[in-house]
Design a protein around this nucleic acid. Structure first.
Lengths: 365, 365
DNA sequence: TATTTTTCTGCAATCGATTGCATATTGAAA
DNA sequence: TTTCAATATGCAATCGATTGCAGAAAAATA
């Protein structure tokens, strides 16, 4: 339908868009020096006459020259790139960790390549292989629920790439790690609830193949043991990590003949929110009749009624710790022994949903 | 402090870690063919004998060969990489857009490189230049508040790289764009509030150099005009986009002699949350005495009391639209005219915070 | 059987930046 | 003045994968 003139105009515009990029050879030719001199002048490396250097840099700016880091990295044998693999990019915890990593790596002129596994092993393997092919200098990973085999991570090490695991780690792999002390945080949360007089505390747990959920359960069990409270297996519910799954699990728990008087949603604050909604629907008073504790300090935990006691994982700090661990290892010539593990201490944030004693006191006054 | 033996062991371990990666030359040598044949066999491109091809692929797997995409991309002149620049990675809207982009690009074997500008022009320029240096095939960007000059984006085009703007766009640049119809969404939200009987609606707006905030204000003004409501400049407050800034602006507004009876926090749901908290603190009933509308449908908007009316921007769909626009342009040989703009229609989500009439009805029954 | 076409492999160049080293020149030291 | 050291530049090779093309061999066609 287009006229001939229009058709030629389209082709002409397209050709213009694909113009050749300026290379160091263009600069060299213009200044009658070699590419070698141009390279030295641009990188200020090796000997180059000051006047030549300034002229090269001026010309490069005039020609709008941009270095090709594909070529540069290939020749230099390093890419200044860190690959990050997380289960889901838009999950707040991981988004914050990534932000923390990016914060620190940007300062060092490093780039991030970010992949998401969508909690699928197959996709995680593909992410890892893509990053290996890209010759990234380091791979940072939090494994997916679906991942039961870690050959792909062993392969990272075999290819000579630094591997750092964070949060969800494969215990069997001896690599650099940045983790939360989930066990201690869980222990403190459950102790707090026991101290508030809750006697029958249920645990909403996650898949036990992931280290983080195992540890949270360990903390729960340790707290019960410390207070001499027997473990009731009816009170432990698996795979209750979304709001909906948390709500369903809560209905079952609260319909038991001997219903719990507190629920520790160790998987997420969303799960805790599901608990809260069911309790409200059943006219169960929080915190006086039922205590609720979540995990992760999502933004909404302070605005619910009552606000939800939870655990803050300092996700951005974790990200920064990951990046700094990598740079420390770069500079460290003393290494060779056991790979380092950085332990971020989570903090229990006590709010209204577990403050039974405080609530009882203020009810009296 | 280490013994001599330990020191040597450390050095030896470090050398082992930096083992040379397998290249196609290693495979070629092992099979007594040339690298050319190996390359053809691995990529299944050009002619190669079937038996040779299988043998090469088997050997590559045995040697755990991984292609070097630096070299590959350099030679081929394409990187299959899309660079994304957003103001902040851990802001929910942008995290969701990135997730949507990644979702679609992963299917096509593309990689994402993600940068954040931290709402700073200087950092945005650096992000863009890094991506140009990396020879990404496309740059996707949502500009920062601080960005008043777009030479760096014009440079992207000059370097022959495809540029796609989303959400916050520079109107003066004729590029591919994916935007929200902010004006219409805003118009509908304000009409809805006017229909609910609110007569004095205040606007919490963002910096007017960004297109999105200009459009949201335009929609507000159009709705007032449609209902014949005069514009009161005391009701328009700038830079109220965090919870805290929204709260401060609300205090001022509600202390006016002729205070507004509704507040449209057009910048964010966090701002609306600030409004809600101030209203609660001043014993102002929502929605009967004050209507509140936010923007972005953050997760918490449905759990506050009352839940907050807001606008859903379909952020993940936006991300997918960005990616699909890029791939459509790759396949499109007819282009050359005006670059395409994809328009995502936001949806008004009506909840308790503006439901004055419904609330009045249920109070009667 | 002779001719033409298809298949296959290897050679050499390419991509763009970096760098070791040889050579020439200049400046400093003996 | 002679010798030694520093500065500067250019040449050529390197990095690892890809690909155009020449030449040979095999297969298909006339």
């Amino acid at each position: 339908m287009q006229s001939i003139a229009e058709k030629y105009f389209c082709i002409f515009t397209k050709v213009m868009k694909q113009k050749k990029r300026v290379t160091i050879y263009d600069i060299a030719q213009k200044l009658n020096v070699t590419a070698s001199t141009v390279s030295r002048a641009l990188s200020n490396n090796g000997y180059v006459n000051e006047a030549t250097r300034l002229l090269v840099q001026k010309t490069a700016a005039e020609l709008n020259y941009k270095r090709n880091t594909l070529a540069s990295n290939l020749r230099k044998g390093e890419s200044k790139t860190i690959g990050v693999v997380v289960p889901r990019i838009n999950q707040n915890f991981f988004a914050n960790v990534i932000a923390g990593i990016e914060d620190s790596t940007y300062q060092k002129g490093y780039n991030l390549v970010i992949c998401q596994s969508d909690e699928q092993y197959k996709k995680e393997v593909k992410c890892v292989n893509t990053l290996i092919n890209q010759h990234v200098d380091c791979i940072v990973i939090s494994v997916s629920v679906d991942s039961l085999n870690y050959d792909h991570l062993r392969n990272v090490i075999d290819q000579g790439i630094q591997l750092i695991q964070f949060d969800r780690v494969a215990d069997e792999l001896q690599t650099l790690k940045v983790i939360n002390d989930n066990e201690q945080a869980s222990f403190e949360a459950v102790c707090h609830m026991l101290e508030q007089g809750y006697k029958k505390i249920a645990l909403l747990e996650g898949p036990q193949n992931l280290n983080i959920f195992r540890q949270r359960k360990d903390g729960y069990l340790r707290a019960l043991k410390k207070f001499g409270v027997p473990v009731n297996s009816m009170y432990v519910v698996e795979n209750a990590w979304t709001k909906e799954l948390g709500a369903a699990a809560t209905k079952k728990l609260l319909n038991l003949p001997d219903a719990p008087d507190a629920i520790f949603a160790s998987t997420s604050d969303f799960s805790a929110l599901g608990v809260l909604e069911v309790a409200n629907g059943m006219q169960i008073k929080v915190p006086s009749q039922l205590g609720i504790c979540g995990y992760s300090n999502e933004a909404f935990t302070e605005i619910t009624s009552p606000s939800i006691t939870t655990i803050d994982q300092f996700s951005m700090d974790m990200g920064r710790a990951v990046a700094n661990l990598y740079f420390d290892e770069l500079n460290n010539t003393d290494t060779g022994g056991i790979p380092k593990t950085i332990d971020i201490k989570p903090v229990l944030i006590i709010r209204g949903s577990t403050s039974r004693k405080s609530e009882a006191l203020s009810a009296k006054s």
